[in-house]
């Protein structure tokens, strides 16, 4: 059975939109609903859509980085946001913010919590990618009769 063209094209479009939404949620996080984890989950939903549409190949096409590199980098960034205040002699995880006057966007409050959120975002995305890497199938869904996994054939 071949993959449906409608499914293919529509998931491509929705995936990109969802990813943009996830980044918006990440940035909006501090004072409005959103944040790193929620952004990451929405991003994860985008990846899931890509998997539905194009299988594991399209999930891999997102990035050339290994999933655990993304996850590790996220954890590094998040833990830095705990360590930097300590090094500066403040309480662990203490936050600061600056108000910026940016063109187009107007007055924007940039908080150091955003750094932590970005770390969490990368961590969640890395984990979702890893889950697909571990559980997803090489072949596109529906392209073969049985759902035999690649590994474990020996048993």
């Amino acid at each position: 059975m071949r993959r449906s063209t409608i499914l293919d094209v529509s998931t491509r479009m929705v995936t990109v939109t969802t990813l943009v939404l996830s980044i918006y949620l990440l940035a909006a996080g501090h004072n409005q609903p959103g944040g790193g984890f929620i952004g990451g989950l929405v991003g994860g939903a985008a990846i899931a859509l890509a998997y539905v549409g194009g299988g594991l190949e399209r999930v891999r096409a997102f990035t050339r980085l290994q999933p655990w590199t993304i996850l590790g980098a996220g954890l590094v960034v998040a833990s830095l946001s705990a360590i930097v205040p300590l090094v500066m002699g403040r309480a662990v995880l203490e936050q600061g913010f600056v108000s910026l006057d940016l063109p187009v966007l107007g007055k924007v409050k940039a908080t150091s919590a955003l750094v932590f959120d970005t770390g969490v975002y990368a961590l969640v995305l890395g984990m979702v990618l890893m889950a697909f890497e571990a559980l997803g199938e090489e072949r596109t869904p529906g392209s073969s009769t049985g759902s035999t996994p690649g590994r474990g054939e020996a048993s």
């Binding site: 954890l75 984990m127 890893m130 890497e133 590994r151 474990g152 020996a154 048993s155």
Partner: peptide, 17 residues
């Protein structure tokens, strides 16, 4: 026996934080 056989093909799948 089976365990010994499977020992080598353990992938890096199940690890997450």
């Amino acid at each position: 026996q089976r365990e010994a056989e499977h020992h080598n093909e353990a992938g890096p799948d199940e690890w997450e934080t």
